[in-house]
Write a protein that binds this DNA or RNA. Structure first.
Lengths: 179, 179
DNA sequence: TTTTGATATATCGTTTTGATACATAATGCC
DNA sequence: GGCATTATGTATCAAAACGATATATCAAAA
């Protein structure tokens, strides 16, 4: 695995469950994973090529039932080992760029109304995402007997708990700013 | 302001309060701002040069009281306008790369004990940061009469509320995984 | 029939990261 | 006093990521 390429981890993790194309990987990232990670084609495709050369993933025979090219990748034993090694790495590295908080921090250069509006926009955004997560949660609760679903469930409850804390903060903060 | 350069926003915001060198800006980013943003010298210095050419910031006479070069920057009217325009932009764009959640999501490829350990590591990390934020909070409460401090206070309470929700989730999730 | 939208790979310029280089000033300590 | 370490400060570089766009096929709707 490349020393400093984080996208590899997403790719390895996703391929552990099923063979996927670069496009499939992007869809997963834009789906449930988007709540805590993101990645673009510009990082996915070069990573897949490089990881193939490193023997972490293997290109599957292209499914030419129509003529359109489609390159699905399969996880190798070496790739699985790399994934497991990463899971056992004892370090916490969470990176965030919270533009909402940056605007809040610099709020003093403008009227209070501007900050209140920004909190409202954030609140709306969080409410929408919270609804989506709640649907995920109730769907997962029905299939919790399968081990993998337990992990998905935990990420979803993490999101729900966090978003609910955000919303409480929004209410409280708007009140304080309006005083 | 450059179309897609986010670091500009941090620089504009910080310079709104006082004149700073690139090194000073880095110190702020590694200080209180690190809880919701980050940035390296490799982005700060080139951005400062470029922003000077755009007339957003102005280089101050270097303070040669010792011989060592030191380039402090001052916010121009144009820079202040750019900052205010950004604050009023009605869009929410918060990016995060939560490695802890990625590991959790892919936890199924390893023993439960690995995920439990990862939650513990996350928990320790959050507890440490929470202590720091609580000190910030009690210091800010003494000086809340000044408008700017209110905004810093709000970012701090955001962090505290979020971190406390994280910790509750950690306790709950570890219990669930140990069942 | 056409055009929209989904599927699919790939590349490009710009930005960011993380590390390092280089140099001076201040501080700690034996 | 001498010596090492830490803090201050600017700057650059390779690697990585972003966001947009190009190209092309196919299905479905208008």
């Amino acid at each position: 695995m490349a020393k400093d390429r984080k996208i590899d981890l997403v790719i390895l993790g996703l391929l552990a469950h099923e063979d996927l194309t670069g496009y499939d990987i992007k869809k997963y990232i834009d789906g449930s994973i988007r709540f805590f990670w993101k990645g673009s084609f510009g990082s996915i495709y070069p990573a897949l090529s490089d990881m193939e050369m490193q023997g972490l993933v293997k290109r599957k025979k292209s499914d030419n039932s129509g003529g359109r090219e489609k390159i699905a990748y399969h996880l190798t034993k070496k790739g699985e080992d790399a994934l497991k090694a990463w899971l056992k790495e004892e370090k916490v590295s969470n990176e965030l760029k919270y533009e909402t908080l940056l605007k809040l921090y610099f709020g003093g250069v403008e009227d209070r109304s501007v900050t209140i509006r920004n909190i409202e926009l954030f609140e709306e955004n969080i409410k929408q995402n919270l609804e989506i997560l709640k649907v995920y949660k109730s769907n997962l609760e029905k299939v919790l007997d399968e081990e993998d679903h337990l992990y998905y469930y935990l990420t979803v409850t993490f999101g729900i708990d966090t978003y609910e804390a955000y919303l409480k903060w929004c209410t409280k903060s708007k009140k304080l700013l309006k005083k």
